[in-house]
Design a protein around this nucleic acid. Structure first.
Lengths: 125, 125
DNA sequence: ATTTTTACTTGCGAATTGCAAGTGAATAAT
DNA sequence: ATTATTCACTTGCAATTCGCAAGTAAAAAT
């Protein structure tokens, strides 16, 4: 789920992004999860045309379809726990769910890598 | 998550309900999960006043707050996989999210044990 | 007084995970 | 041209978690 979230709202694309993200996932598990997400057709992988060592991972239509679930989870978390998410920002998002989801999908369609949740940080590169 | 879902929409309340639910969860794991859900304040347990062997588990306010997440997950699952959920029914729910959530909360407040998702079945007793 | 029901706990082998150290191919640096 | 480095993994092993079967304790039913 963290992988899906990071692909969705943090602009992650590459294996190394997750390694250095502080999610604390071991590389063997990460490789396994990316494989399974591909089998489940939530994620697709393609080698970077400019550097064939690199692999770009991207959510599929099915994967981006999880956006409403992730958004509700974000809202719930911010309301009931101390996540790092600023309460007021999240309440703004809760009051404008459709706009947030439309923007999320827009960034997916246009391959816009800017993170939607700035407090999580983008890829370290 | 299945425990939370079953408490939320299947009218489950007791340990034995989960054991016989076909979720295929071992009793030691079930006990551990119920304990952790209590620690996380998603679930509370109280002994049945009429039969003190029995324990009634119930979602807390925080727990029922996950209803929007579960609903979005249900919708996503029905759209992208063959879950047992009838597509048309789920699309009706997707078109009336607020009403579904209001009814879910009403059943929680009033301790109404009738299952909201009939195709999952209620507790076997 | 004995049996049954209910909610667990215990013990153990099997599967999953975390950690550290590789591997191999592609690019970058010298 | 040769060597070094980057990148996406894989491998081996110990530690944790899990599934399964059996057991336990308290309360209720017989």
């Amino acid at each position: 789920m963290l992988i899906v979230r990071d692909l969705m709202v943090r602009g992650f694309r590459r294996f190394g992004d997750f390694e250095q993200s502080g999610e604390g996932i071991a590389t063997n598990i990460l490789a396994d999860r990316l494989r399974r997400l591909q089998q489940a057709e939530l994620v697709e992988a393609e080698p970077d045309p400019e550097d064939r060592r690199k692999v770009n991972y991207r959510l599929t239509e099915k994967g981006i379809g999880l956006a409403p679930v992730m958004l509700e989870l974000l809202i719930w978390g911010a309301r009931h726990e101390n996540t790092g998410a600023p309460r007021e920002v999240v309440e703004q998002m809760a009051a404008n769910r459709d706009a947030v989801l439309a923007e999320t999908r827009r960034r997916w369609v246009e391959r816009d890598p800017r993170p939607i949740l700035p407090w999580l940080g983008g890829p370290k590169r």
